[in-house]
Amino acid sequence: MLRLSSLYRFPMKSATGESLRRAKLDALGLEGDRRWMLVDAENGRFLTQRAFSRMSQLSARWNESGGLTLSTEGMPTLQVPLPEPDANLRGAFVWGASMFVPDAGDEAADWLSSFIGKACRLVHVPEHRARDIPGSLLPEEKVGFADGFPLLLIGQASLEDLGQRVGRPLEMLRFRPNLVVEGSEAYAEDGWKRIRIGGIEFSVAKGCSRCILTTIDPATGERSADREPLTTLKTYREREGEVYFGQNLINRGTGVLEVGMEVEVLE
């Protein structure tokens, strides 16, 4: 039997993730997932571990009010309240998409600018300001600050197979999935089109293309000198210049997910 073995939420894009036993699904994926983001203070372009690996050491925890708790070694903890959804709007750019989203204020910006060593702003995306999923023709298909889709799924067996090929165990958090499924063969998720978990259906949209971020150790923030696991992935998971690992999902309903739930492959 296939089952949901892990749930992860990443409240701020490119900051640390949190392991959950239970999570709600809303119109943008897991409630509180990738609803906050750092942007360049000058041009609004999003900032990630790709350029600022130090962000891997930034704890950003979502709370029930929708606000954020920021903490890291050597700095005081900061509580960031949820900003008003239609006030203090700032232009933000995620890949090719532009958005106008509320700014979280000067205190958060100063704290985070000091942390990463660059002038930045913290922004939040309320549901009604989410952007269209790339390539979608359905107006109800929206995404927050995730790269392209609301959810990412990886099979546990796929990670274990990759670790064997690399020659050392790999942390699942390198790949930043929301859902981990166990009980399937390695890369079985590549062939799924529709699945159901806990009565909620999901469409499997496309494979997830991977980048240099996977070479950053989530525990230390250091890049792998041998560029693993990206180097190994390129030897057998590359198509048309992109390296794929994991599958992007769109949830077709809302509700609650819990670790241990059965995963049904519908198509």
Rank of each mutant, 00 (worst) to 15 (best):
F245H: 08
P150L: 10
R121F: 00
F115L: 15
P229E: 08
V80W: 02
D86M: 10
V265Q: 06
P11C: 11
Q156W: 00
L213E: 01
G198P: 11
G96T: 15
K193Y: 08
I197G: 07
E31T: 15
S59C: 10
E64G: 10
F93D: 07
L266Q: 04
G221R: 07
M37G: 09
R223H: 09
E73H: 09
G260F: 03
W95F: 15
R22D: 10
E185F: 04
W36Y: 15
Q79N: 14
D86Q: 13
G241A: 02
L138T: 14
F52P: 02
L137H: 11
E264D: 15
R223F: 01
G148L: 07
G191N: 12
T69Y: 01
P83I: 03
G117I: 08
V101Y: 04
D86K: 13
I195T: 06
T72N: 10
A157Y: 01
V39K: 00
T69I: 14
G67R: 03
W62C: 13
P126N: 05
D226A: 09
W62M: 14
R34P: 11
A109I: 12
Q156R: 14
E242A: 12
P177M: 07
P126K: 03
S184K: 00
F46E: 09
I216W: 04
W192P: 12
S209R: 00
F52M: 06
A186S: 07
G246R: 02
Q164A: 15
T235K: 12
A27F: 04
M12L: 15
M75W: 06
D147N: 11
D161F: 02
M99I: 08
M75F: 12
V125G: 09
G91E: 05
P102T: 09
S6K: 15
E240S: 14
T220F: 00
F202K: 10
H124E: 01
L138W: 04
F175Q: 07
K206V: 10
I200F: 01
M1Y: 00
D106F: 04
F149P: 04
R168N: 04
R223S: 13
E18G: 07
V39C: 05
E171G: 05
A130N: 11
Y236K: 04
A51D: 13
S53D: 02
P126Y: 01
R239P: 01
R176Q: 03
V94W: 06
R196I: 03
R3S: 15
S158D: 05
V94S: 11
W192T: 12
M12R: 05
T48F: 02
R9M: 07
E42K: 14
S59H: 11
W95T: 14
S19H: 12
R21M: 11
C208I: 02
V125S: 11
V265C: 06
A188V: 01
E141I: 03
M1I: 02
L68M: 07
R239F: 07
Q247I: 07
L7S: 13
T235Q: 11
S5L: 05
S65W: 00
P134Q: 09
L159F: 02
L230N: 05
T254R: 10
G198C: 12
L173N: 13
I195Q: 03
G91I: 01
P218N: 05
G191C: 06
P134N: 09
G144H: 07
G246N: 06
M261Y: 08
R176I: 06
E222W: 03
G221D: 08
L112Y: 00
Q247H: 06
P169C: 06
L25M: 10
G29N: 08
A186H: 01
L257M: 03
R121H: 06
C208K: 00
